[in-house]
Design a protein around this nucleic acid. Structure first.
Lengths: 103, 103
DNA sequence: TTGACCGGTAGGAAATATCCTACCTATTGT
DNA sequence: ACAATAGGTAGGATATTTCCTACCGGTCAA
């Protein structure tokens, strides 16, 4: 339910990256890439699922997880009003740099 | 140091919003908008400062905090590779909607 | 100089997060 | 039917977060 909290964990961000790069994955394949036992990864997957960032689909005895990027829009939307701030500051920095003599 | 973790708290996101909308603010003015004692807000401010999201400047007996949006670029950059995913999905949804009969 | 004010730190309580091992169910292959 | 496999749940240890009250130092104003 809370996208920002779900993204706070490096492990969970890494899970999202794996799903983005590889597409749908069973738990075991994901778990292979972490120095962590499977039940711990299961908990991370549950947090991601509660946040709507992944979906799960049974396939035989496996469960295939895939990326569901929609909730990331909330983050992108949240960032929007800050963009002009860092653009202005980057522009200011650019001016300062342009004002320096060539080396 | 960890921008994503700093953004996980609704209180801290609200602090950033206040600083964005009002500019530089002393602690007391910020604290007035939360149902929380001042020392707790001080801790949130420290987390934001450690993440580089605010700067602090002494002014008499006050300390003025202001927004420092640069670290948010890290978040925006992290989001970038996911953008095409939700765009594709939105496009797909659009097609479905377009295919529906007018009501 | 002294009292009021601003805001940080100390230390503790309670809740939550993050890991583990042990165990359970469901599915598959022999 | 049975052993092996996939993956979730239970419950516990520990660490971290988030709040509080009490207190402290620095600054300003009378």
């Amino acid at each position: 339910m809370d996208v920002f909290a779900a993204l706070a964990s490096p492990t969970r961000r890494e899970v999202l990256r794996l799903l983005r790069e590889r597409g749908e994955q069973p738990v075991q394949l994901l778990a292979d890439h972490f120095a962590m036992r499977r039940p711990s990864l299961s908990e991370h997957l549950r947090v991601l699922k509660d946040a709507g960032l992944v979906t799960e689909r049974p396939a035989g005895r496996q469960r295939l997880y895939s990326l569901r990027p929609e909730p990331l829009r909330e983050v992108a939307d949240w960032l929007t009003p800050y963009e002009r701030f860092w653009r202005e500051r980057m522009a200011g920095l650019r001016e300062v740099l342009d004002g320096l003599p060539d080396d």
